[in-house]
Simulated assay, not measured.
Amino acid sequence: MSDDHLPKDLTPENLEEIAQQRQRMFTRAFWISLLKGNEGLGDTFWAGNYLAGLFYLGVMIVLLALASFIPFFSPVLSASFVAFGIYLLAVARAVAVAKPKGNAGMTLRVIGVIWTLLGAASVLVYSPYVAGQ
């Protein structure tokens, strides 16, 4: 597996490890481990918030389009916001217990938890308004 955008100083054995880590992020075992707080602090924060958010964005757009034409999907869209908010609460807990891989201290952990809780709060507070209620 080759990526043209990788830095030149990486050795071939590191490239294989990076490729395996990338593939692992799309497995169920990784997400279970992430939500338990067994992954590194950075992986837990970034994948937990934004990789999952990228997936949810696609789901939300499809549900939004369907809700525009079929009223049944309005409450389903609202429920998806609630589900994503609850997921983000679980990610906040995972960020709180995740171990940093480098020199990250308590400051980054606290900022990550606060950031994730703010994301969860915004999704949960906004959820009733999505369905036009």
Rank of each mutant, 00 (worst) to 15 (best):
M1G: 15
S2F: 11
S2I: 11
D3V: 03
D4T: 12
H5T: 14
H5Y: 12
L6Y: 08
K8R: 14
K8S: 15
D9W: 15
D9V: 10
L10G: 05
T11H: 09
N14V: 05
N14S: 10
L15W: 02
E16L: 13
E16H: 06
E16F: 02
E17V: 13
I18Q: 07
I18R: 08
I18S: 05
Q20C: 01
Q21S: 13
A29H: 11
A29E: 15
A29W: 04
A29P: 01
F30W: 12
W31T: 06
I32R: 12
I32W: 12
S33H: 04
S33N: 11
L34P: 01
L34D: 02
L35W: 07
L35D: 06
L35I: 11
L35A: 08
G37Y: 09
N38L: 12
N38C: 03
N38T: 07
E39M: 10
L41P: 00
G42N: 10
T44M: 04
F45M: 10
G48M: 04
G48R: 01
G53N: 08
L54T: 11
F55M: 11
I61P: 00
V62L: 12
A65E: 10
A67H: 06
F69T: 13
F69Y: 13
I70C: 03
P71Q: 13
P71I: 10
P75S: 07
P75H: 07
P75Y: 06
V76K: 03
L77N: 00
S78R: 02
F81D: 00
F81A: 04
V82P: 00
A83T: 13
F84N: 01
F84Y: 15
F84L: 10
G85D: 04
I86H: 05
Y87I: 10
R93T: 08
A96H: 12
A96S: 15
A98W: 01
K99E: 15
P100W: 05
P100Y: 06
K101V: 06
K101S: 06
G102N: 10
G105C: 07
M106A: 12
L108I: 06
I111H: 05
I114P: 00
W115I: 03
W115D: 09
L118A: 15
G119L: 14
G119Y: 07
A120Y: 03
A120P: 03
L124F: 11
V125N: 01
Y126C: 10
S127P: 03
S127N: 04
S127M: 05
V130P: 00
V130E: 04
V130R: 01
V130H: 00
